[in-house]
Design a protein around this nucleic acid. Sequence first.
DNA 1: GGCAGTTGTGTTATCGCTAACACTCCGTTC
DNA 2: GAACGGAGTGTTAGCGATAACACAACTGCC
Lengths: 344, 344
Amino acid sequence: MAKRAESAAGSGRQPGLSDVAAAAGVSHMTVSRVVNGSGAVRAETRLRVLEAIEKLGYRPNSLARGLATGRSRTLGVVALDSVLYGPASTLYGLENAARDAGYAVSITSVNAPEHAQISSALDRLRGQGVEGVVVIAPHEATARALRDVSQDVPLVAVADAEGSPVPVSTVDHRDGARRATEHLFALGHETVRHVAGPHGWHESRSREAGWRDVVTARGAAEFPVLRGDWSPQSGYLAGWELLHDPDPVGAVLVANDQMALGVLRAFSEAGVAVPDDVRVVGFDDIPEAAYFCPPLTTVRQDFIALGKQTFGQLLGRIEGQRVEQRTVVPAELIVRESTGPRSV
Amino acid sequence: MAKRAESAAGSGRQPGLSDVAAAAGVSHMTVSRVVNGSGAVRAETRLRVLEAIEKLGYRPNSLARGLATGRSRTLGVVALDSVLYGPASTLYGLENAARDAGYAVSITSVNAPEHAQISSALDRLRGQGVEGVVVIAPHEATARALRDVSQDVPLVAVADAEGSPVPVSTVDHRDGARRATEHLFALGHETVRHVAGPHGWHESRSREAGWRDVVTARGAAEFPVLRGDWSPQSGYLAGWELLHDPDPVGAVLVANDQMALGVLRAFSEAGVAVPDDVRVVGFDDIPEAAYFCPPLTTVRQDFIALGKQTFGQLLGRIEGQRVEQRTVVPAELIVRESTGPRSV
DNA sequence: GGCAGTTGTGTTATCGCTAACACTCCGTTC
DNA sequence: GAACGGAGTGTTAGCGATAACACAACTGCC
């Protein structure tokens, strides 16, 4: 032990339990008990140990702890499109929830939603000893790939999929779209148009479904959807298509804020006023949405809540409980000027 | 050993080196050698071991390996604004580089660029046994906070700061802005205006400096900069200010693409044609930039290269080499229609 | 044929920690 | 006052891997 204490002082090595023990004149177990608050330690002893810890700048080594306990308190995240607003925010929310629970987050990203890539990402994480994995899977292809991936580590997907083979957690896109559509109807419009997202994305499907729910329930005219690719450009094109529609357009639900920006742009160029001539709602509440011209009514997703919920669900699986196969965070309608009252 | 092999079969526990050893009828060291390709192993033995590994689905436990070697092969990342395009992309590039080098990435984010928060984030990562840390620090406040943070773990900041107390890695924002400005002058403009980013950001300062370099060198009229906050709205306002400027505006360098979008919008509303009446350049090359109306000339940052370089720099520090105090990735000018030739 | 040098393999110690149990004091209890 | 029980502390044995050395069994060379 003396050897150990000396060598620690000599080299730049991080001090260990036994260095602290030597400095405080106790056994390493006593130090461990102080650090973890487990077992009984006399107040005076605890103080001595704490002083030694302070003096040496001791920090527990979580690798060793993980090895000894079999619990790494680390969460793995597989990200696909980490630059898009939704997925990036989801990662942020997850990291937040994990941190609050004392978990570390190890991230690994894959280029394409293919089975081989996802499988190897899971292998990497498993080798790192993560206790569970969250797969951020906005593509339907990812969800499919998860079907036949080995499941020897607890796994939850963030995906708005129904009947998924793995438990999923999601924001309620469908209900969000319903609320947005209801909001537009409530303003007196006869029907609501929809600019949808691309095929192959859960979000596209769910938001479109929510829009259709309300249009159908109201018995309103159901025009075919226009389809974009999430980009402002595609929204812009959709905007012009709407302008050239023989039937007058009074209200539009756009599947995300960036496309809504494009739509607004097209309308503005055509001299169509929002909200006076047409009312527009987006989806996502990206930070810029409040600064669009006009500020955009949109549907906000609470990524902090989503992270918390997803993490809780995963924790349940880790602890072997039976967990919900699908949990949902409500979406919130944020009303701004793009659906405001019309000026005289 | 027999005990071990049985218990592994019974419980769902992950198989270990000794399970494989028992199955292959060799010692655990031989298995270790096969796994790591270190030392000599007879071809026949190797085959037997590989079969056992395959059969049992063995994966090395990186916690144990890290404990034994003292190298966790894990990289820590401290992120501040993980949702903005730049920082999110930086994270993505880093993860990429780390993965290629067989490193895992553990991420932790902080809410504010304060010393206490950053210090505790570093502590968290250190406890996880990371070999080095990258701090994504676009704010000048973060760089300041790093000054008096304990440096017992190799650290590199991604920040375009000069004379930083810690090694930094960055895209060459200043040179990128210079190139963009030169490009505009080369098109025959007498001077170039600048819409800058907010105070307190390295990127704002560097891009503005690059613009000023060229304007000064050319001896052109140097109009005061307009200043936005990165949002399209602020760009829109700046755009209107430019329109109302008594001196005619022919060319504008905007400090990021989102503000450039706002500028384009303002010009379009005012009936000012881009590029016919005014030429506009942005910065970032966000995915949408190519779809703006008109498609935006901008400065692209190679985040994959940035990640690679930052990671390499950190690896150098980890291995105790003397490394560059500041490394830089060149920026690339992407010419699109917003600075295209003027139509008749 | 003997001695060195290579291969291939096994043994043991160690990384820093926790789990499980052993032990020493004490104050109770009957 | 002997037996008990709990508080406080120490000892030992792992967790799953690598490192360092030990030791056969073969070469090859003089």
